[in-house]
Design a protein around this nucleic acid. Structure first.
Lengths: 297, 297
DNA sequence: GTTTTTAATGCATAAAACGCATTAGTAATG
DNA sequence: CATTACTAATGCGTTTTATGCATTAAAAAC
């Protein structure tokens, strides 16, 4: 039995039409027919009920469709991981990160990696709706930077740094670090923030912040994208609340007012990941532990 | 990539000697050499460091040895399950059971299965040291009768029946149902029972029984095997405590005195088992719910 | 330096994969 | 009911791959 035959089976199971399925796997209809027959003979299990016009999965075929889909995906993951181990520091690893560090910690990190492991390629992903935990467990990323700790026995975490949460306004705004006394004073301000109904860590942090200060913001624009938010704030369409890191994006015309609230940055990885390159990258990441180093520039 | 190549790899990874490994997989040394080379080329990963005298796994090879071992076992399980589904009531299923029902519930059950599903083959196993839970999860059994409930979200349970725990003595013993007042009276008796340090359910039931009656038995023989125990009791080497079911083994010269304690019998199966034959067998098992029916014979 | 051991390779043969052309069976259509 | 359209299975020839015997070549053992 070959993995190719399993893949032929899975595509045919989806299409239930030999010619259409053969087109999808780039072989002739007769080749597909023979390969399916050969597979059925080898494993001694009838996979399809079929005649000249109808193709249906048998009960065993349905069972195998479900199980082999998972198994084949797992084999593919295993092979990709093995490839990374084989290629070592001349290969590549995947890293996901939150947008908030794109201008702060991340450039520092990438510089260090480029210096120490010049042949290593990085695949960077800024996930929008996938939780980092899921990305790690599904092998869609090897290292995940994120703002909240991941409680999962299969995932290891390390806190990289802590930074303040900031009120972000236009420079022309009446608010300054000196004038702000109570967040409640902002209840008439227009806010440009992440949707408070969202399940992301940052949304829940915002919810808690407003709850603690006993007011509900007047949200006029909802967005998750920090860069977009900064531009809108610069155009005086409203004010926002973002991590301090965004200050380094150097969008002109905005000011950052530190609030009495902090946010962490964690690096996470699969606990049992045997890839020495991933381990090396994590060790390097740990040496870059203060965003303030970049601030002094 | 074929499953056969993966199996060649796994055997070679174990042996680290081409000729020895080729003997184990029944091909020539040159065939094995070429198949490993072919696999390495197809997946683009170097599996072994080798020259004419040394064969060592690479880091990637070690990783794949671990992962592919699990994956291949999983594929084998999947295929066996699919075979069972394919064969339906003309195939076979595996059933494990505790020794105590070998003469009571089990013969009833087997009679019913034989009548309703005459073409179905059963593999019966009386596990000695494996927990039924593990046997189910590892696909080593499809249905597990046992005395304790299995708390596992992947396993479904159904209580078949409840029966008394009995004091088992020789017929010539001074004890009768009329003379027994308190188990403490038995503290000078010789006991032939399962080891109280064992982790089995029955051992812990015995421990609780003695604890409740505030005495420690004088154990002269330790055994898990009910049939052996009955014979020794008949020979007046001591007395024992066993489930009522053993009464039906018809060992002459022993009497069963019901105690004020009960024990259950459960049938367990994998919650997501799609095999209709297994489901049918479970439904049939549920219809046989009283050991007393057999008793009236 | 010689011998032994053993993974890799050359080569001939057998088996399997492949696709074109065609068959044969089943639904759709008139 | 006959004809047509559709499509999985099959015949057949070609190409590719697997296999094992014999041998080579390289590395340890002596």
């Amino acid at each position: 039995m070959t993995t190719q035959q399993i893949k032929y089976f899975l595509v045919l199971a989806g299409e239930l039409h030999f010619w259409k399925a053969s087109e999808k796997v780039y072989v002739s209809q007769s080749t597909l027919s023979r390969q399916i027959q050969s597979l059925e003979q080898e494993i001694g299990i009838k996979l399809f009920e079929r005649d000249k016009r109808n193709v249906k999965l048998t009960d065993a075929g349905k069972f195998l469709q479900e199980k082999w889909t998972v198994a084949i995906n797992e084999l593919d993951h295993i092979q990709k991981q093995a490839k990374k181990i084989d290629q070592g520091t001349s290969g590549f690893i995947s890293i996901s990160y939150p947008g908030s560090i794109a201008f702060s910690y991340l450039p520092l990190f990438l510089n260090v990696i480029n210096e120490d492991l010049p042949d290593l390629k990085l695949e960077l992903t800024e996930p929008t709706d996938e939780r980092h935990e899921k990305l790690l467990l599904n092998y869609e990323t090897d290292i995940a930077f994120n703002r909240d700790v991941i409680n999962n026995i299969h995932i290891s975490s390390f806190k990289i740094n802590t930074e303040p949460i900031c009120l972000v306004t236009s420079e022309k705004h009446w608010l300054t670090e000196k004038t702000i006394i109570n967040l409640k004073d902002l209840k008439d301000e227009n806010f440009i923030i992440a949707g408070l109904h969202k399940t992301t860590y940052f949304s829940s942090l915002l919810r808690n912040l407003f709850l603690k200060n006993e007011f509900e913001p007047k949200t006029v624009i909802e967005s998750d994208f920090g860069g977009m938010i900064l531009n809108l704030v610069a155009q005086e369409l409203g004010i926002s609340i973002l991590p301090y890191s965004y200050k380094f994006s150097n969008v002109p015309g905005v000011q950052f007012i530190e609030l009495n609230e902090k946010i962490d940055l964690f690096i996470n990885w699969r606990k049992t990941d045997p890839n020495k390159t991933t381990q090396k990258v994590i060790e390097l990441a740990k040496t870059i532990n203060s965003y303030k180093k970049y601030k002094s520039k």
